[in-house]
Amino acid sequence: MAAKKTSATANVSAEELKKYYHDMLLIRRFEEKAGQLYGMGLIGGFCHLYIGQEAVVVGLEAAAEEGDKRITSYRDHGHMLACGMDANGVMAELTGREGGYSKGKGGSMHMFSKEKHFYGGHGIVGAQVPLGAGLAFADKYLDNKRVTFAYFGDGAANQGQVYETFNMAALWQLPVIFVVENNQYAMGTAQQRSTSSQEIYQRGIAFGIPGEAVDGMNVLAVKEASEKAVAHCRSGKGPYILEVKTYRYRGHSMSDPAKYRTREEVQKMRDERDPIENVRSMLLTGGHATEDELKAIDKQIKEVVNASAEFAKTSPEPALDELWTDIYA
């Protein structure tokens, strides 16, 4: 595929746009497959799907440089794929197999990659926020000009440790971007039922941390906002809050019947705001890609996802003595 000179929008080339399409679609197809494997009993325990939120992490990653760090909660599959971790290793961790990123000992919620600077995968709501600031603390200590993306949800935004962290991150000018993935529901509790002030990005004002809200269903808007946030952090001005307004199509986890919202609400979002459809139509109407090109991308993704499922089924269960390893370094 020859690189096209034409620009899809003022700041984005057709090649970049196609990459975002690819990366978002990979996450969606991967998650659909994970849901399928869960249904077959191949994935046990908890499994929180990222479907609907793909533009958030793909937009943020578009602004990252090599060596930048990321950390998130238990809804972590999308973040791992977006930062370049191998689909096979992620899927095999979901099935609890030896070939998984944590040798089958972490599961859906706990995966890590030193190579890709992905620091988990944390199951305690809000804990990744000070941990993420700690990654940034290390970068500042080592003076290596790296930034950290610390992702958390609208639910975690009500944890006290988030504000303890805001205080210290501002006090010590840590290069951390607090990314609030506001998907409007903390498990089954709608934001207006749990949160006194709806504009989470404004909660940094008390600490002198700049913040902004961005449309998380639009990958280009996310990318633009994250470039601004990254520039702020990398130049040594301290932390930044980016509230990304998004929506999850599926339940909180696989065992959530999602009765706290209507089917119409979900369908409306899928029909009108879907981040992948959005880019797809941008590519087609702008003449940046043909149907055939997009089909080829779809096909290639399907192959990657199917191969990951196959790997996740055939990779062996961890040996029993793995129960006793990795407890001490």
Binding site: Y119, L131, A138, T165
Partner: peptide
């Protein structure tokens, strides 16, 4: 939490 994160790094 910040100290633990810095130790991860």
């Amino acid at each position: 939490g910040i100290a633990v994160g810095s130790a991860f790094a």
